[in-house]
Design a protein around this nucleic acid. Structure first.
Lengths: 340, 340
DNA sequence: CTGAAAGCGCTTACAG
DNA sequence: CTGAAAGCGCTTACAG
């Protein structure tokens, strides 16, 4: 079928109305399932739609009502399985409402993020779920407000003026530290990496607070490079500080994977020579041996929740800003033992 | 800002035109960077756009020209890191053309996939990149053609009438088998799982052909359950056949991860007691110890290629259907040795 | 280069 | 329940 034929064969609501011998207004009411239309008429119209192969044109409808049924989702890194799970939760929940999600990857770049927001705005998205790129200025929030763009921040926050769905990183750190302390550990390192943002700060602060609460040295922070392969090869950094840790908490799933591999390379046995706790608990925590004890943050559920909040926000723009902070759970598996 | 104020403050092209003392037509030409407009006029119009905070309304434009600048991407499983990388390639390449991608997850369910295609059609997508759910009937292709919907199949194909971008699974199998044979292996198992589709068939057929070419027994197929945890616990199935394999090729990355873990649980050393080859080579092949020798399929590049083909197809609907089949590369690492 | 006009496919009062 | 009409914001000939 050539594109010309296609264009000619476009069936409109008026065609449907004529075929069913009703007015266009009535056909439109049937389309939107209005109770104003009698069931016999409705059936006739629906039959006409089938007969003619009618396709609803949301774009045209949108021009009248100010609602596109499209929402945007911007994440800093699609390749990270953690964000993939987040996205999967967003898509699931948004799809369930009959809407559709435009996906974009900011690649942790602020200018690219601006461009994407602008593009989404031109597409008339009803709102966006945003995991702000590291370095995003707080005043982005004012711009978005000036645009009248409903947004919910997810996992990272830049402003208290916008909805936020995230996780209780401090609580997670406490769970990890308390658990290690119960095993007898006192010299606990926190292995971090990646760019600086609210979730980074909350994890580090949470770690320090949890350590201080136990009167442990809160300053054993190990800075690791961003790439998976490089992390494994940087495992020696764990032992480069004055204090030799007997346990290490990982910033996230990538750090845990990398260190697990690196420790193996060093000939060290996890759980015996050194205890290891993961964070963010993505599916393959199960695939590491020994199985990785991990603080679970439930990215899928967070994505669903963020989507739900956005839908509410769109329906009711004047709601005060909300914060939803999910609890973490500690999944005890086999990577921690008593200090050597 | 209330939603009412927002509506009132909508700046249209006509406002811009008046502000710049030109006609709406001229303003429209400036918008689309037509060379017909003089540079002085152009500058005045652009200034007016800035002054007024004009936002281009793609939806309205779309109603005139039959092009939404939206494309759809449907994958069977977002959570699988392999598909996340694919998607990342698609998003990247589509974004580079200024278009936007609507993402959806079929969850490997055919009816859901139909619903998603219909929904995307109502949104007027210019085309879709589809990784068809297992069980998709070939006649979906006819329906899509009747719709006049440009589509490129990716990774899995259901019809020769539509563009396809995939990987040379048979070639990959040959690489794996030949490599193992060069190490002295003859009893090689293929560990499969998941639903049936073209990529499944091509891998299995490719495995058999490669084995037959070496005059090895081509029938050591091990069927594993779909979930990561269950795979590890099913490792004993490798040894339940009459012939005990000395090496196993994994259907994909999940199988490789699961079996690596399971073999560890059985007290077996990979590369010494049993050789293991992965397939699909996602990032964490590096995180397994020993490092996993793997057949790389490059999902990101495939996503980019599929996006590029779709853009071409949209521009030129009458092109004959094309097939792009990427070569795999064998990444030799440390999980294979000589037979025990 | 510009202006006036038609039209894309829908929704929404409004009068019947 | 129905019909006629206006309008959402843009693009596209067309005549100047």
């Amino acid at each position: 079928m050539s594109s010309q034929e296609r264009k000619k064969s476009r069936v409109t609501l008026l065609d449907v109305a004529r075929h069913a011998s009703v007015s266009r207004a009535t056909a439109s009411l049937v389309l939107r399932k209005s109770p104003l239309v009698g069931s016999e008429t409705r059936a006739r119209v629906e039959q006409a739609m089938r007969d003619l192969g009618y396709v609803y044109n949301i774009g045209a409808a949108r021009l009248r009502v100010e609602r596109s049924q499209i929402i945007g989702a911007i994440v800093p890194n699609l390749t990270n399985p953690f964000f993939a799970e987040l996205l999967s939760g967003i898509e699931e929940a948004i799809g369930a409402t009959g809407k559709v999600v435009i996906l974009a990857n900011s690649g942790e770049r602020v200018e690219r993020q601006s461009m994407l927001l602008q593009r989404m705005r031109e597409h008339g998205v009803d709102g966006v779920v945003l995991c702000p790129a590291a370095g995003t200025e707080p005043d982005l929030s004012e711009q978005l407000a000036a645009w009248g763009m409903p947004v919910v921040q997810v996992l990272r926050h830049i402003s208290v003026d916008m909805d936020y769905v995230g996780v209780d990183y401090a609580g997670g750190m406490r769970q990890a530290v308390d658990y290690l302390a119960s095993l007898g550990h006192e010299k606990i390192a926190f292995a971090v990496h990646g760019p600086f943002h609210s979730a980074y700060r909350e994890r580090v602060d949470g770690f320090r607070d949890a350590m201080l609460a136990k009167a442990f040295d809160p300053e054993i922070l190990i800075h690791l490079p961003p790439q998976l392969g490089e992390i494994a090869d940087s495992t020696h950094l764990l032992f480069a500080k004055a204090t030799q840790p007997t346990a290490v908490i990982c910033f996230n799933h990538l750090v845990a994977l990398g260190l697990a591999a690196g420790l193996h390379d060093c000939g060290l046995t996890i759980g015996r020579d050194l205890s290891l706790i993961g964070f963010d608990d993505v599916a393959d925590a199960e695939a590491i041996r020994p199985r990785l004890t991990s603080v679970s943050t439930g990215p899928t559920a967070i994505g669903e929740m963020a989507a739900r909040l956005l839908v509410e926000r769109i329906a009711n723009p004047d709601l005060p800003p909300r914060r939803v902070v999910n609890d973490t759970t500690l999944s005890v598996r086999q990577s921690c033992g008593r200090p050597a």
